[in-house]
Simulated scan of single mutants.
Amino acid sequence: MHSRGFMLMRLFYLSSQFKKKIRRFPALILITSLLVFLVFTLHIALGSISLSLSDTIVALFHPRANALATIVIWHLRLPRTLIGLMAGAMFGLAGVLLQCITRNPLAEPGTMGITSGSILMIVAWFSFLPISAQSILFLPLVAFIGGLGAGGLIYILNWYGKTDPLRLALLGVVVNAVLQSGTVLLLIFSHQLLDGLLLWLIGSLNGRTWDHWAVLWPWAVLTFPLAIASAAVANALSLGDEVARGLGLRVEAMRVLLFLLATLLAAAAISAMGGIAFIGLIGPHIARKLVGSDNRRVFLLSPLLTAGLLLVADIIARLLLLHIPWFSSASTLPVGVVTALLGAPFFLYLSSYTAKRSRQG
């Protein structure tokens, strides 16, 4: 009786917490959106020519008010910021999709090999095709083919191994090492591409223009609604295969479709700004901590958080470049360096926590 009473109290507590999270979710989305807008404005304002927040906002909404601010913002900084915002959101959605379909908290485009596969295919594209045939319009599809091949291989091998989280991490390390070696070999034999692709391989917003934005946004318009609409399917998959089948879901087919969607999201983002380490891992986990396990809320909050985190990382990179003497000789500091330095400890913590839970379970 005592045990039963304790369980009822526990269920009542969890139910009350769940209702609180539902009630606070609209306010959380609003606050997060305002914070992301603030980061968006700061990202545009900071640079070698510093602008005040008020001048930045005025120039955004009234381009003719300040000629210098208009040139700096609309011709140089705004496309970079928009690409960072959109690519970050796409990495966030890709990460949460991969974590749902693999039921693995360590899954994200980097650990699944999608990033390395996409980069290898893009470098091969630039290495072997004549310059006249190269166009950034095809880069998302090129990246998708490479990401699908590498990610599909890791997905199949991991699923064969009963989706052990640490097995996924190990497979990711091995496959990524092989793919990165292939990328280095291509760059060695096509050394004329090295200067143009090195920062992009690490992950950088430097030099992003309206042309890159024109390539990215149609893929976002295509994939975002599909990803958000798949939240209910992700919820069913998280209950386990047997329960999902009992609900009438074709589990294997849905997993494949969601994996294709996650790969397309990541590949489009990679084609715009290169490989960004760990950003697709951090955002979804923070979102789950804030709103719980219901993917209908996680799928909305995760892209917002990840987009903001990516812009914050680029702001940090820019501040280091402007104010730290050790970096002053460099022309640019890729945002991928900052996300790797910040994300590596998070990944190690998550790996150890997951391993501990696996041993206890």
Score class of each variant (00 low, 15 high):
L51C: 08
S52R: 07
D55F: 02
I57P: 01
V58L: 11
L60I: 03
P63I: 11
P63H: 10
A65Q: 14
A67P: 08
A67L: 11
L68K: 07
I71D: 08
V72N: 00
W74V: 05
H75Y: 12
H75N: 15
R77D: 08
T81K: 02
T81E: 07
L82D: 06
L85H: 04
M86T: 12
A87E: 04
A89C: 15
F91L: 10
F91Q: 01
L93D: 01
A94G: 15
A94C: 13
G95S: 12
I101N: 03
I101Q: 06
T102V: 06
L106E: 05
A107Q: 09
T111Y: 07
T111Q: 02
G113M: 10
G117P: 02
G117C: 08
S118H: 06
I119W: 03
L120M: 13
L120W: 04
V123W: 00
W125E: 05
F126E: 10
S127C: 14
P130C: 00
S132V: 14
Q134N: 11
L137N: 11
P140T: 08
P140C: 10
L141I: 15
V142S: 00
V142H: 03
F144N: 02
G147K: 03
L148M: 14
L148F: 13
G149S: 11
I154M: 04
Y155P: 07
W159M: 13
K162N: 15
L166G: 13
L166C: 11
A169K: 07
A177E: 08
A177K: 08
V178C: 14
L179M: 15
Q180F: 10
S181G: 15
G182W: 05
T183P: 10
